[in-house]
Simulated assay, not measured.
Amino acid sequence: MRVVVATYGSRGDVEPMVALAVQLQALGAEVALCAPPDEEFVELLARAGVPMVPFRRTWRSWMAAPSTAEERVFDADEYVRGHIEATYEPLANAVAGADLLVASGMLHFVAQTVAERAGVPHRFVVFAPVLGEVPQRDERVGPLINAHRSALGLPPARDVRRYLFTAHPWVAADPVLDQWEAPADLDVVRTTAWILPDERPLPPGLAAFLAAGPPPVYVGFGSMRMPAEIARTAIEAARAQGRRTVVARGWAELSLIDDREDCFAVGEVNQQKLFRRVAAVVHHGGAGTTATAALAGVPQVVVPQAADQPRWAGRVAELGIGVAHDGPVPTAESLSAALESAMAPETRDRAATVATTIRRDGAEVAARVLLG
């Protein structure tokens, strides 16, 4: 069976699809994965042994675009057209002759059209509870999708939400972290989160830093655009709590603020292993980072920036495994207070308890269902 797994988005979109691709291959399927050609994604697929079909444009190149869902809809014409142009033709070429298409991320603008034209069954998966939040976008997104479909000789999509996510969407998210009820009008297939095991050792310099003192605070915001001063804010907040800091550079290219020995900067690193060695994780609230920190049993401080991140922040607070920062731009004082709460013994104990309830087999279960 030949399966095309495809996504267009950040690390939080790509890594779960790689996890699925690995499990599909283990069950004997022939798999190709369409993904943005960013260097870190190319390296990720190479490590996993999954053949890659690159899209035309890197995901990092969208960093200059608006970051929130509301801003993107406001500029829907440029945004949607740009994604269609970057993804439609490579995906259509990859799907030719395939038996199944599994898509995610920003491919919802083209995946259904590609599947229809190729006559290939299509499954669309999301990693956050967004299925009930689309109708307000219909007025702006629908005409752009239908203009593309018309140019291909296809009839218009009259129900934009069903076009974007299909009538039988998949949700891959841990049920403990994501206590969400599916819309009554959609037949949703649910699995636990798709987690790609990472056995890479930590870089020697980082390992030495960790061994040289008490557990530090990890600070990282993934692919989010962040103000340059956020590194200073975070380091000062950690120092106020008597903690060292590991700063993840991320796509915002954060850097250290001085040459004191209580801070260490890292690039792309094994978060699964690192998070088990830190006192708290300060992050933006992406689905993947939230799940990885929860699985590690480490307290979290979520500073949500956009999209589904406020919801994940809320769930972290509701579960008692961390703190949701009030607003996207912390001060040293507000972040220090959040860290103090997150590192309290009761929060640390609760995080350790919740970690034991999170399952790791979501991608394997999904692969068996898809091939069954």
Score class of each variant (00 low, 15 high):
10 S>K: 08
97 G>S: 09
215 P>L: 11
70 E>F: 12
183 P>S: 09
50 V>E: 00
239 R>W: 06
325 H>L: 15
19 A>T: 10
323 V>T: 13
60 R>E: 14
58 T>Q: 13
280 A>G: 04
293 A>Y: 09
359 R>A: 14
237 A>I: 02
187 D>G: 01
320 G>I: 10
302 V>E: 04
200 R>A: 14
28 G>F: 10
179 Q>Y: 01
310 P>F: 11
63 M>T: 11
222 G>W: 09
69 A>L: 11
316 V>P: 04
117 R>L: 15
127 F>H: 14
206 L>S: 04
273 K>G: 03
355 A>T: 03
43 E>N: 12
314 G>F: 01
186 L>W: 09
148 H>R: 05
65 A>P: 00
113 T>K: 00
26 A>T: 03
205 G>A: 08
138 D>Y: 06
137 R>A: 14
157 A>C: 02
334 S>G: 13
37 P>N: 13
356 T>G: 06
6 A>S: 02
114 V>I: 06
20 L>S: 03
86 A>N: 07
205 G>T: 03
117 R>N: 01
366 A>M: 03
70 E>D: 14
274 L>A: 01
220 G>Q: 07
113 T>D: 02
57 R>Y: 00
370 L>M: 09
239 R>A: 04
136 Q>G: 01
27 L>C: 03
237 A>P: 05
209 F>C: 10
188 V>H: 11
332 A>Y: 08
13 D>F: 08
334 S>P: 10
112 Q>A: 15
129 P>D: 03
8 Y>S: 10
323 V>S: 05
146 N>C: 05
145 I>H: 02
46 A>R: 15
295 L>N: 04
201 P>I: 05
22 V>E: 01
144 L>W: 01
269 V>H: 11
326 D>T: 09
10 S>N: 15
91 L>W: 12
103 A>G: 03
208 A>C: 04
104 S>A: 15
161 R>K: 14
88 Y>R: 06
20 L>G: 01
215 P>W: 05
234 A>I: 05
323 V>P: 08
